[in-house]
Design a binder for these strands. Structure first.
Lengths: 76, 76
DNA sequence: AATATTGCTATCAAATATGATAACATTGTA
DNA sequence: TACAATGTTATCATATTTGATAGCAATATT
């Protein structure tokens, strides 16, 4: 999985978990002190967010941070 | 958990999982195409590594990436 | 219809991570 | 003892993420 592919998969996962909580990008962004434009970039897979940001997302969505990285082990 | 506290906890976890595989910083760094000085910085909690790097670590250590983020839920 | 909300994209500056390298201490090994 | 490997810290340059902002389209909501 390339970096870009990873980012896209991660972005989709973040969006999915955010929508499960019926939260907007703006809301989650505010809770985590990041811009909504950045939320959009991240969910679109256009950037490679920091580990700490994943932790913040998880905290604010009240889920385990590890859920973001539960990718099916497709590749070696 | 502050950003710094997170980085320290994450760094310790990375070190622990790396040593479990009897791998040196140099070896894991080479496999992931990152400098050994960067490995040291990360494990010391002096930097906030990218999500993709966690993924690479997991792949090369043959573990689930989610293991890096399995922190005990100490904080709200 | 008008307004607000949401999400996307682009731009530029600021902050941060990483590469590359060097020097040092420590430990293992020849 | 020498030598290599390992890990740490520091520096500076480069790359990347993020902040801040704006404009746009689409969709609610009034």
């Amino acid at each position: 999985m390339t970096k870009k592919e990873f980012q896209i998969a991660l972005g989709k996962r973040i969006r999915q978990l955010r929508e499960d909580k019926n939260m907007s990008q703006t809301e989650l962004g505010n809770l985590c002190d990041i811009e909504r434009s950045n939320m959009s970039r991240i969910e679109a897979g256009n950037t490679n967010p920091s580990s700490y940001l994943l932790y913040l997302f998880a905290q604010k969505l009240e889920i385990e941070a590890s859920e973001f990285l539960n990718f099916k082990s497709l590749d070696k």
